[in-house]
């Protein structure tokens, strides 16, 4: 017999969507973090807020509209970064505050019943069947894209100039990285919300780094930490009646603290071994 939590369709959908996001977010986050693009994820999530506001105003599917908006913004940001006309951080701040401001104004025109908190912090239990199809399809494309170019992205992340020398299509991959990030962020909004999505991209990756493994193992570990945290977070939020997004992030932070301690213990033992 199924546990109580799986007897509800909305919880099943929450687990499936949560798992997809939990795999994809740290996967792309592994590249964004090293390239110091964490603020980029933040800016795109705020652009998604604007897109959701437009979707609500026009009565369209918010996941689909936020995906289109985030992809356009990602391409624009990469263009600005590549041409070096605007400093990376400045252009991100521009997108971030501009989108939030415009989104808030648009939402003020719409029916007051629009749950802004669900955009900000996610509403995983409200995922509809059509949302799930969009999340699954976009997630699959993003996953295949990352896996296909995994080695090239690894070289590019380590040393962009070296990647160019090895004949890797750096410009194309930079755009790909940005656009895939945009897709992942936009499909994550219903799951974890615009204010918390960056944490799902960054914290599992930082957690895996504490265990001092190679890049491939770190990526795998970060996905494991992320999936475990999302599953535990959803279950805990169901039984304890807590908001899922916040619960997931607190579990991620707890995992990070444990890994930090484990990493320090491992390091101390290693030095003891070398000394002896």
């Amino acid at each position: 017999m199924l546990p109580q939590i799986f007897q509800y369709d909305f919880m099943l959908r929450a687990f499936i969507a949560g798992t997809i996001i939990a795999i994809l977010a740290p996967l792309i986050g592994s590249f964004l973090l090293i390239r110091r693009y964490s603020l980029f994820a933040d800016a795109l999530s705020h652009v998604s807020f604007l897109s959701v506001a437009i979707a609500v105003l026009m009565d369209f599917n918010p996941v689909l509209v936020s995906m289109i908006g985030a992809v356009i913004a990602a391409a624009g940001l990469e263009k600005l970064r590549a041409t070096k006309r605007v400093q990376s951080e400045s252009s991100l701040a521009l997108f971030l505050s501009g989108s939030l401001a415009l989104g808030t104004i648009i939402l003020s025109f719409v029916n007051a019943s629009v749950p802004i908190t669900s955009i900000l912090f996610g509403a995983i239990t409200t995922i509809t069947e059509s949302d799930l199809y969009i999340i699954a399809a976009a997630g699959l494309v993003a996953f295949i894209g990352i896996l296909y170019y995994l080695r090239e992205l690894f070289v590019l992340t380590f040393d962009e100039e070296y990647a160019r020398v090895k004949g890797i299509r750096v410009t194309l991959l930079n755009y790909l990285l940005m656009i895939v990030s945009a897709v992942i962020i936009s499909i994550s909004i219903t799951v974890i919300g615009i204010l918390l999505i960056t944490s799902l991209m960054v914290i599992p990756v930082l957690t895996s780094y504490q265990l001092r493994r190679g890049f491939t193992q770190s990526v795998v570990l970060s996905v494991i930490f992320s999936v475990v945290s999302v599953w535990t977070g959803i279950a805990l939020s169901f039984y304890a009646d807590l908001p899922a997004g916040g619960t997931i992030v607190l579990i991620l932070i707890a995992c990070f603290m444990i890994a930090l301690l484990a990493g320090r213990l491992f390091k101390a033992k290693k030095y003891e071994k070398i000394a002896s």
């Binding site: 090293i34 080695r151 090239e152 690894f154 070289v155 992340t157 380590f158 070296y162 090895k166 890797i168 895996s208 780094y209 001092r212 493994r213 190679g214 890049f215 491939t216 770190s218």
Partner: peptide, 16 residues
């Protein structure tokens, strides 16, 4: 902070 092993770095020379 880049978490790469020596083997992974050398493998970059082959890209794939």
């Amino acid at each position: 902070t880049f978490p790469a092993t020596v083997e992974e770095i050398v493998a970059m020379g082959l890209v794939n």
